[in-house]
Write a protein that binds this DNA or RNA. Structure first.
Length: 460
RNA sequence: GCGCCGGUGCCCGAGCGGACUAAGGGAGUGGCCUGCAAAGCCAUGAUUCACGGGUUCAAAUCCCGUCCGGCGCUCCA
């Protein structure tokens, strides 16, 4: 049975879907005002992994992830760069989508935009006002009344009193608000800002309300999983909970948060000068290397990103691919029946809070056994391991087939010709000629592997 | 300052009181295989899990304290 850590319940709990065999999940997407960085990639990968695993496990998954295309950051950035908010948001949304595609993150089933949901948000806010869970302040907007939500703070295990202390200590309290914890549902527009008409005057929606509107519209008033980065738990997700429960919606049955990522021992931040865009990283390392590295760390552990770590993952990926090449060269049956014991171990690891590190350990154990089996000439066992490895890596979104030989037919033809020549030389024990060919190819970035089934080549 | 989460071999990282004789990966070293390589296989590596106390028959795993790091309390994946 699938189980995972539920932030709100503070424990690993069994997953009992609302509808048998189905999973509805909503994951907070980015505010599109800048290039996505590696941290965005980690969160996206965390939920991509969960989605793929649940699908592999037989669930029909509906996955929604939004685009926040109106917010302070967008407004500020647009004015800084002399463009309009819609143009800026559209540009960075495209960059986000391109980079996530490049990283191999499956596209969501629905990708709603905040600006498409203003009418729904206004309805929602009106409902909260009618229920007495929200109030308006003339010229400022509409605020949610935290007093109306007795459990406020429960998502992160804090009481309203504790939160007020923190708020008072750190944030300038707006004296007009009834409670320092009250937060904006609707913000009155300042001159020159994008605005929509509302019963409370022209303005724009607050951040939290958009996710409530979009999630419930696309997934229903109650849905299975709401996810996001750890830094969103408070206040964003807590406020979503307050809003939804203020309107008496069931809302998310489970909350999942993915841990942050550090670069060279430090938080990644522009101010520290270690801000790594996903684009830059993917220029330097293959997407699969980054995916493997992230999967080798549990999603709730703060992970370290460094050149050493990346190099390590690169080596690990090479090992997986080398096995795959070898299996293909040996003509192993890719549809051989799976190793049930290994699949069971993998499933147990993953069912326990998406234990990808342990799941990968099963895969690597299998690869070692498979290599040994092939060394020993046991092709049946090797084929079983091969098909199992492919199945399990597939569940994790890792593609082992490399396109090392693709894209250049002329080169491929030439290499094949040289390999034939070298093969002839080796047969005649003319190793000097054979080695010269291999060295020449190596100088051109072509690596050879001699196997009983023939010589395999690939780009290094 | 308050709250939460961490500190495990050269590196990344699992581990959630008893098969820990601490998973898995990377790097290193020795051996096997190979004409030689590459790939692969085998072997080797923490008497120790930040530090100091404590609980327990039993602790990396629980409790207390100290030091260090991260996150949240403010836009944030």
């Amino acid at each position: 049975m699938v189980s995972f850590y539920d932030t709100r319940r503070r424990a690993v709990v069994p997953f009992e879907p609302l509808v048998e065999g189905r999973v509805s999940m909503y994951v907070c997407g980015p505010t599109v005002y800048d290039d996505p960085h590696v941290g965005h990639a980690r969160t996206a990968l965390t939920f991509d992994m969960m989605r793929r695993y649940l699908q592999w496990r037989g669930f029909e998954v509906t996955f929604v992830s939004n685009i926040t295309d109106i917010d302070d950051n967008i407004i500020n950035r647009a004015s800084e760069t002399g463009t309009t908010e819609p143009e800026l948001a559209a540009r960075y949304e495209q960059v986000y989508i391109d980079q996530m595609d490049r990283f191999g993150i499956a596209r969501p089933d629905h990708r709603p935009h905040a600006t498409e949901y203003v009418a729904e948000m206004l309805d929602f806010i009106g409902g909260l006002v009618d229920r007495g869970a929200a109030y308006s302040i003339k010229g400022k907007g509409v605020y949610f009344s935290v007093a109306a939500h007795h459990r406020y703070g429960d998502l992160i295990g804090r009481t309203p009193e504790e939160l007020r202390e923190g708020a008072g200590a750190r944030v300038e309290v707006d004296v007009e608000k009834a409670d320092p914890l009250d937060f904006a549902l609707w913000k009155a527009a300042k001159p020159g800002e994008p605005m929509w008409d509302s019963p409370w005057g022209p303005g724009r929606p607050g951040w939290h309300i958009e996710c409530v509107a979009m999630a419930t519209d696309l997934l229903g008033e109650t849905f299975d999983i709401h996810g996001g980065g750890d830094d969103l738990a408070f206040p964003h997700h807590q406020n979503e909970v307050a809003e939804a429960e203020g309107a008496e919606l069931g809302f998310a049955r489970h909350w999942i948060h993915g841990a942050m990522l550090n670069v060279n021992g430090e938080k990644m931040a522009k101010s520290l000068g270690n801000f790594t865009t996903l684009s830059d990283l993917l220029d330097a390392y293959e997407p699969q290397v980054l995916r493997l590295l992230m999967l080798q760390t549990h999603y709730r552990t703060v992970m370290e990103l460094s050149d050493d770590a990346l190099a390590g993952a690169s080596g690990a990926l090479d090992r997986l691919r080398a096995w795959h090449r070898r299996a293909v060269a040996a003509g192993l049956d890719p549809s051989a029946k799976h190793d049930a014991a290994a699949v069971a171990r993998f499933t147990a690891a993953m069912d326990d809070d998406f234990g990808t590190p342990a799941g990968l350990a099963v895969v690597f154990d299998l690869v070692r056994e498979a290599n040994a089996a092939l060394d020993a000439g046991d092709t049946d066992r090797a084929a079983t391991a091969h098909s199992t490895v492919s199945d399990l890596t597939g569940a994790l979104g890792l593609a082992l087939a490399s396109d090392d030989q693709a894209g250049d037919d002329a080169l491929a033809a030439e290499v094949e010709r040289l390999l034939a020549e070298r093969g002839e030389a080796r047969k005649n024990k003319d190793f000097a000629s054979a080695d010269r060919i291999r060295d020449d190819l190596a100088a051109r970035g072509i690596v050879l592997e001699d196997t009983p089934a023939g010589t395999i080549w690939r780009k290094s």
